[in-house]
Amino acid sequence: MSIGVVVFPGSNCDRDVRWSAQGCLGMPTRFLWHESRDLHGLDAVVLPGGFSYGDYLRCGAIARFAPVLESLVDFVASGGRVLGICNGFQVLTELGLLPGALTRNRSLHFICEDSALTVASNRTPWLQGRSLGEALTLPIAHGEGRYQCSDDTLRQLQDDDAIALRYLNNPNGSVADIAGITNKFGNVLGLMPHPERACDPLIGGTDGRGLLQALLG
C-alpha cells in the first residue's frame, strides 16, 4: 500500500504531504516526478499545492500536459484514488477529471487563514462516517480559489451528490460556497483547503487527518 505524491516544477506542498501522510499517519509515500509515467504499485496519488510550472497562462493549464498526468487518467479510470489539493485541484479541473474552474478570488487578495468548512456529502470514502453539516477547520492559502461553473454543471454536481465540502463564510466568492468536489464515482477529490497542514495537534489541528487516511482507507 503506497501513495504517490506528484512533484511538478513549482510544487511547494509535496513535502508537507509526505510529512503528514508518512510522518504523522504512517502511510508509505513515494514522490513522482512530473515526467514519470510509472504509477506501478500505487494505491493512491496526491496532486499537491504550489505553483506548477509557475502557473503560467492559467493555474494548472500547463501541468495538465505533464506525462505523469497521462498515466493518471488511466489510474482514475481503473478506480485509483486521487486527491488534488489547492493547485492540485486546479490541475484536476484543467485536466477535465473534475468539472468547473478555479478563478481569481473575488477580493483579489491572496487569502491565508483557517477556514471553517462543513461536510456537504458523506457519500464518498473521503468523508465517510462524518455527518452532513459537520464542521471542520482547515487552512486555506490561495489567490485563485473561486470555484466557477455553469448552472448546468452546478445542477449536475448536486444531482451526483458531488459537492463534498462547503465554506461556512465563503472567503473567495465560490459558486454555491464550494470548497471541494468529487467526481461522480467518488474516487477523485479536489479541494482548495489544505488537509496536510492539519494533521498534527501542535500545528493547525487534526481535522485534515481523515481526508488523508481515506487515500488508503
Partner: peptide
C-alpha cells in the same frame, strides 16, 4: 457570466 474582479478594480 464570469465575474472579473481585476476588471472591476
Amino acid at each position: 457570466s464570469v465575474l472579473d474582479p481585476a476588471g472591476e478594480a
